[in-house]
Amino acid sequence: MADESGNSGAEVVAVAASIDHRFSKQAAPGITIIAGLGVQGDAHAGERVQHRSRVAANPDQPNLRQLHLIHAELFDWLETHGFAIGPGMLGENIATRGIALLDLPLGTLLHIGDDVVLEVTGLRNPCAQIEAFRPGLLSHLARKQPDGAIERLAGIMCVAIAGGTVQPGDAIVTGLPEKPHMKLGPV
């Protein structure tokens, strides 16, 4: 870890989990992170891929999507576009505030609270389930840029490096990887 950024004010605003493979997750007062697996009792926890379409393609893939994080500022922005979206509704485990999640480089370590460490593995790739959840929402979360590239805004994916409990109000400190930094891609 080359660069520790204090991220003054970066914090967890909500946590959620679901034992079932559902689009939205239930808000909780806290979640337990298990190193190498993800959120205890969550359908996406595991060493190997748990996302249904990825399991169908190759169940032996490593699970780079153990946890899903979204910046709560996205909820604010979506509201200005007519979408009332709150924590857990887009399937994330942790909603944050005060940290530019989408700008983090690959391999960034997120130190949450006293014990938890997550490693950033990539961007969430918004899918058709988002459109089924709220018609018109997908075009706000996966926007085509003038150069043809897709800008993905639906949060980031992480793996659990160190476990513990995460709850609203926990501070987040970012540990950047050695340079050169690699831009996040979809996972």
Score class of each variant (00 low, 15 high):
Met1Asn: 10
Met1Leu: 11
Ala2Ile: 08
Asp3Glu: 13
Asp3Thr: 12
Glu4Asp: 05
Gly6Val: 07
Gly6Asn: 12
Ala10Leu: 00
Ala14Ile: 00
Ala14Asn: 04
Val15Glu: 04
Ile19Phe: 04
His21Pro: 03
Arg22Ala: 14
Ser24Ile: 01
Gln26Lys: 13
Ala27Lys: 12
Gly30Thr: 09
Thr32Cys: 11
Ile33Arg: 09
Ile34Gly: 08
Gly36Pro: 12
Gly36Ala: 06
Gly38Trp: 00
Asp42His: 12
Glu47Asp: 12
Val49Phe: 07
Arg52Val: 14
Arg52Leu: 13
Val55His: 10
Ala57Ser: 12
Asn58Arg: 14
Asn58Met: 07
Pro59Met: 08
Pro62Phe: 04
Leu64Ser: 11
Arg65Ser: 10
Arg65Gln: 15
Arg65Met: 07
Gln66Met: 09
His68Pro: 06
His68Asn: 13
Leu69Asp: 01
Leu69Val: 00
Ile70Trp: 01
His71Phe: 01
Glu73Phe: 01
Asp76Val: 00
Leu78Asp: 06
Glu79Leu: 09
Thr80Cys: 02
Phe83Leu: 05
Phe83Trp: 04
Ile85Glu: 00
Gly86Phe: 10
Gly86Asp: 15
Gly88Met: 02
Gly88Trp: 02
Leu90Ser: 01
Gly91Asn: 05
Asn93Thr: 09
Ala95Gln: 02
Thr96Tyr: 00
Thr96Pro: 00
Arg97Gln: 10
Arg97Asn: 00
Gly98Arg: 03
Leu101Cys: 04
Leu101Tyr: 04
Leu102Glu: 14
Leu102Cys: 05
Gly107Ala: 09
Leu109His: 14
Asp115Lys: 10
Val117Lys: 11
Thr121Tyr: 01
Leu123Gln: 04
Leu123Ile: 02
Pro126Thr: 03
Pro126His: 04
Ala128Trp: 13
Ile130Thr: 10
Ala132Gln: 15
Phe133Thr: 04
Phe133Tyr: 15
Arg134Asn: 06
Arg134Ile: 06
Arg134Val: 05
Gly136Trp: 08
Gly136Phe: 09
Ser139Val: 11
His140Gln: 14
Ala142Gly: 11
Lys144Val: 14
Lys144Asn: 07
Lys144Thr: 15
Gln145Asp: 09
Asp147Gln: 07
Asp147His: 08
Ala149Arg: 14
Arg152Thr: 07
Ala154Phe: 05
Gly155Lys: 06
Ile156Gln: 05
Met157Phe: 11
Cys158Glu: 07
Ile161Phe: 01
Ala162Thr: 10
Ala162Cys: 08
Gly163Ser: 03
Gly164Pro: 03
Thr165Leu: 11
Val166Leu: 08
Val166Gly: 07
Gln167Ser: 13
Gln167Gly: 08
Pro168Gln: 07
Pro168Asp: 11
Gly169Phe: 12
Asp170Glu: 04
Thr174Met: 14
Glu178Lys: 15
Pro180Lys: 10
Leu184Pro: 03
